[in-house]
Design a protein around this nucleic acid. Sequence first.
DNA 1: CGCGTCACGGTTGAT
DNA 2: CGATCAACCGTGACG
Length: 223
Amino acid sequence: MQKQNYGEVNQLGGVFVNGRPLPNAIRLRIVELAQLGIRPCDISRQLRVSHGCVSKILARYNETGSILPGAIGGSKRESDAERGDPGIFAWEIRDRLLADGVCDKYNVPSVSSISRILRNKIGNLSQPNQYESSKQGSAQAGLSYNHIYPYSYPNAMSPTSAKMGNHPGVPMTAGHMSISRAWPSAHTVSNILGIRAFMDSSGEENNHFMPCEKGLCVFTPQL
DNA sequence: CGCGTCACGGTTGAT
DNA sequence: CGATCAACCGTGACG
């Protein structure tokens, strides 16, 4: 796996790992600052992230409403959509909202609300409605747990931005940062049914950044 | 000077 | 099991 993959340092002084997405906290921070009206160039300088990356993340967020990186790896020779599976379901959106940190479990919209809005918006949504209850139990038992991101970041995050990343409340092993985990980027239902591992709900205490009603608005414009 | 875009070198993960 | 390969990653540079 990671052969002692310490982060490299870009020209702005920021730590990054080549080939790997930025930590989720930094992504969230980028979007946060952008919504506060900070200009992308200032965000780039402040977070020590290349402006190309800031632009990319912001553009993605504005388009999809998601902060997360795309699904890395895997052969997508035939996408599930072409095999007849619809792309996404209401409960999947709900899970996604939780996973993104857009909503917490107290203000996340109900599945029926999302479903109604979706149907209102799309119209001809075929709903095979395979609402299996086996998803949670079996998947959690059978599959391995969330692969924690194997980021072996040293503690050498930027010393100026040290206040955002380090939460003493979050259980954090010495070598691993547990704030970033494997986000299942949830392509299809079968995918979600296969992967059901995220959000151990141990670190959701960090809702001090009150994220993005905008993300929710993307999915549920009428709520 | 800001920012959109892309080649580059890299990693990942399903097939 | 290992190899393949298409997806994505952020940086850096160009325009």
